[in-house]
Simulated assay, not measured.
Amino acid sequence: MPSMTSASPPAGAITDVAGLEVGHWTATQRPTGCTVVLARAGAVGGVDVRGAAPGTRETDLLAPANLVDRVHAVLLSGGSAWGLDAAGGVMLWLDRQGIGLDVGVARVPIVPAAVLFDLHVGDASIRPDAAAGEAACEAASAQPPAEGCVGAGTGAVVGKVFGLDLAMKGGIGTASVRAGGFTVGALVACNAVGDVLDPETGTLLAGARTPDGRALRDTRTALLAGEAPRRLLAGTNTTIGVVATDAVLTKAQAQRLAMAGHDGFARAIRPAHTMLDGDTLFALGTGTSGRPPDMLLLATLAAEAVARATVRAVLTARSLTLGSLHLPAACDLPAAR
């Protein structure tokens, strides 16, 4: 299997950030699923949406000028807009735990969410719902989460610029980095229209394949050479994720952390943030370190963690065959520069 470099440090996980848990629900009927990041004690939240075709919920409240400053979970889901229903299940589960924003007459769990499009892989009538969101919460733990073709990454596909038949399998990945007494972790479900590469070496890892299907095509080089992309439906691609830290953040700093995290997408995916993608990154600050951040350092760590998690999303994926559709994984093809 390709790797970032032979000297790469251990990948780590978003759950290395104290105060967070992750759980997956993976459908058995077709490749789809959802993933929840729980912050039972609440976390300061932020978001940055860069793709032009997003599917999201509760993102407006994360704006620094708006009132609510803490969230209790973030949901990442397959199923396109249908998958947003799974966030209701996360709310129900949190409500049973007595977790939420105290509004006097009740506690209202705050659960932002983002979805990716995986309806073209199997029976599109099967998608994550409220029961799926609850199941993901039941499965959540502080242990390093499973990666690859699980949860929100189950039906993810990358490299679709020249058609689904020449694309490859995406997935979900996680990573963490530590410096200056802070931990920053990321969880990324990669369903990009573009290719995924190792940002350290520039080596392509997964993406559009050559017409014979046996090697990587290099979408950037092909487009620059004048090769015409296939006509694709906007919104059928998206990379979504969460970047989190144990630093004590304000809402404005959380938004800035999400913005910096998108640099990791841009380093590991090309092209990123397209008109056909709904790239969305949430940020969480658990505050468990008890220390305010050095934002220059934290932004650097955020971009690094997101890039590494994006790479992990394709390196841990496995091939998928559905009828005549075969989507190889990074481990099935030789990497090419």
Rank of each mutant, 00 (worst) to 15 (best):
M4A: 12
M4E: 12
G12T: 04
D16A: 07
V22H: 04
H24K: 08
T28S: 15
T28K: 14
P31T: 04
G33V: 02
L38A: 04
A52Y: 12
A53Q: 09
G55S: 13
E58W: 02
T59R: 06
D60I: 11
D60V: 13
N66V: 13
D69P: 06
G79I: 00
S80W: 03
D85H: 09
D85T: 09
A86C: 09
G98L: 04
G104D: 09
G104V: 09
V108P: 07
I110T: 02
V111T: 05
A114M: 07
F117T: 03
D118A: 01
D118Y: 00
H120M: 15
H120L: 14
D123H: 07
E138Q: 13
A139Y: 00
A142R: 14
P144I: 06
T154V: 06
T154S: 07
G155D: 02
A156F: 02
D165L: 11
L166D: 10
R178N: 11
F182D: 04
A189Y: 01
C190R: 03
G194H: 04
D195W: 06
D195N: 10
D198P: 02
R209S: 07
R214P: 07
R217I: 05
D218N: 15
A222F: 00
L223Y: 01
A228C: 14
R230Y: 14
R231I: 15
T238V: 08
G241L: 05
T245M: 05
A247Q: 06
A252G: 14
R256D: 11
A258W: 00
A258R: 01
G261S: 08
H262Y: 10
G264I: 05
H273R: 13
T280R: 04
P292K: 12
L301G: 08
A302V: 12
A303N: 05
V311P: 00
L315K: 07
G323H: 11
G323D: 11
S324N: 15
H326E: 12
L333F: 02
